[in-house]
Amino acid sequence: EWIEFAAACREGEDNSKRNPIAKIRSDCEENQPIVYSISGIGIDQPPYGIFVINKNTGEINITSIVDREVTPMFVIRCYARHAITNREVEPPLDLRIRVLDINDNAPVFSQATYMGSIEESSMETTLVMKLIATDADEPNNLNSKIAYKIVSQEPAGASMFILNRDSGEVHIANYLDREQYDRYSLVVRASDRDGAADGISSQCTCSIEVIDVNDNFPTLLQNSYSASIEENTLSSQLLMIQAIDRDQMFSDNWLAEFYFIGNEDNCFEFVTDSTNNVGILKVIKPLNYEQMQSLQLSFAVRNKAAFHHSIASQYQVIGTPLTIQVINVKEPPSFQPSTRIFYIPRDLSKEAMSNYIVGMCAATDEETGLIASNVRYLMGYDPSSMFKINAKTGELRLNKFDWSMLNVGKGFYKAEILAITEGIPANTATGTIVLTIQDDNDNCPVLSTDIRKICMSAPSTVLSAQADQPPKGSWTLRPIDGKTAVSTGVYVGDGTPDVGRWPGRGGTTTLGGGAIALMFLGALIFLLVPILMAMSACCDRCGYKARPVGGVGAGFEPVPECDGGAIHSWGIEGAHPQDQDVTSISVTKHAGSAGEIVESSVSGIYTNTRGGTAINTGMKETSGLETAVDYGRFPIYGTTSGYRKESVGGTLQEYREGGVNMAFLDSYFAEKAFAYADEDEGRPANDCLLIYDHEGIGSPVGSIGCCSFIGEDMDDTYLDTLGPKFKTLAEICLGKVVEPIPGVSATFPNIDSDLKLPPPGTTIIVNESSSMPPQVGSTTFVTENTYASGATLQPARPIPDPLLHGNVMVTETYTSGSTFQPPALTIDPLRASNVVVTERVLAPNSDLRGVLNIPDLTDGANVVVTERVIAPGSRLPPSLSIPDLADGSNVVVTERVIRPASGLQGSLNIP
């Protein structure tokens, strides 16, 4: 697979002036007759004939204008065959021709007009809509990079919306009030080349409706209202009250709802006319002037819809006074109650029946409430002429009586009496009389229904006969016109009859043993439930928590407080940095005689990015120390990216989210080759691209940096253009003898110098490892990790498998306190092969047991160096012990510097 596009042509231009654009040649042509041929899209596949080849010279020409949007790339398969036998003398070779993009396409919106809506009073930055424009030019190229911009807003004034220039998302920028403007219209422009002046633009419109919410209280025109009505009359429209509301008309946010504060007798009712928001006061129950001449009511108004949360707390129920004057009307007398029931004893003799006084049926004067004095009484409906009445007093007597009148009928006799006022006009009041037989069962209360009259019989089993005592025992319900019981039951404790079911005429309700058992069971449950609930609450208080079904670990785990439940993107794999400033050490590895140097300080070919948001562009020389300090200061740091010579598209965010964008890399290399060819003929066409990737998709595990060397074995002068670090790495890749970087001094720490050791409990760990040198021209991956730690001892990090990714892996780990300036560590590896360096600086009183973790290197070309500097202030000469190395390929160096004040007892165990 070719790494680069071998050749390029520009779309929309006549490229033939550059012919031949490429030549192929086989070494076999020196001693064999060779003919060359090509095939592929643009040659013998549509579009045909764009590329042709001189079969004898191998020169490839372009013949037509190409369109990148049609064919972004051509792959020419080149063949070299024997001129006579036609046998392929070389494996086919793919020559990729990249079509360079020109900005010949304008952004195209997905819609000409976008329609959207948003509620008023929404929070700022609320997303309203998202505009989408596409550009047919090359993806990941500036020609297709679209920037959005609001050109105008109607109605004009303060900008109510903000448009994200990159994403096309329209957000609220200001407080929206529908009552001010209920619709906005925006003209939006999309320009490619990221909005540059030379970009091509297109426009669309956005219509945004502001949706109403109930953020206005209804009000009334007046502070108080009054009305009057005659007594004993109803009104469907006693008063009309206009409500005013600024919310959207005819919506529930606008429609008023009137309600009374008072109105205990329910004589009045409000309804709202939804067409004009007028509240109509109705009188639904007659008023009695003699009882109340004036009513002082109060009412309030709200909306049918609930108030918006932004104003709901401000709503106060303020009653509006409403005075109702009742107008007196002259009323005729009346019988109160209008129906009276009289009983006659069953054992009444015939003699006694004559002139038997049934009772008094006097009419009442409505104006005074007393017995009417100016009326005369007459019998009205009395089919059997059973009664006679005293015309002046209303005394009712039996005229004649026949038991058959009751028995044949429904058990009672019904008649009407009249009370007629004297004078003109005469008013007549009518009363109803019901006569029935009094027997043992007639002592019970009488119930009245719409259908029939039912008499509740006296208790069949009377345990207490006192009138002021509640009845006990059983009861029977039966129609008043019959003896057949329709339901029976028992009296409960307070004398209330327990109404059983209604079995129908002639049926009787009885409770069986099963029903009693159910009742007992129900009572038991009522007793047990509170007890069990109390026990459960007690268990909670005692710390017992319910376990999820499915065993330990199933279900949700609670998010601890103060955690926020968010993912903490420390940006550092495998460590747990804290919010502390970190001072790192600059580690330099020297190859003594061979002069191999790999330093941790980063050469000035990239820029730093901090905090994960801001991007600092430009060239900036940073040392490893500076970098580490920065990382310590910004625990959640972003990736570091840098481009030599020129910046290209692709943002930090893209790398973070998508890992290494291979499309971007392709574009990068192509454009860089293009740019180099323009500016410097003698410039080597090699490149070093350092891309710090935040463990994105496809990047090596645990890495934040990748370095790719593209070189050709015929020309290695490009090494001189690299920074010292990557030059060294490239040289390792190429298998060259590595020379030390001038000016870089790295020695063991001088214990007599003013060495600032870290504070107690500080640990410095440096791990470096590298695998076997790669083959020439291959890719090198460099990983760098920087760790910050607190004041506690940190376990050694496992060294990553050097064989996993690429050919050289460098892992650097820094852990220190706030002020320590660590010394450089000089290592003399015998070979430029796998190197593992572990350095620890331990403070006094540290517990060193079990903290050292030197990897077991089974490979024969490994170097393990362990250095320890322990405790300041000591005058003890350093002791350096070098183990006897039977195998020359393995070197283990152990050095200890121990001073008297360290307090350590020499319990270190170093492999």
């Binding site: 697979e1 790494i3 031949p20 490429a22 086989s26 080149c78 060819a677 323009d678 050709e712």
Partner: peptide, 25 residues
């Protein structure tokens, strides 16, 4: 070997041949 020479792009119409050999990523 099977060699490819490509004429590099140059706005100044100055050609420069660049030789490629088989390379793998």
């Amino acid at each position: 070997g099977f060699h490819v020479e490509v004429k590099e792009w140059n706005e100044n119409n100055v050609t420069r041949w660049k030789t490629f050999k088989r390379q793998k990523r």
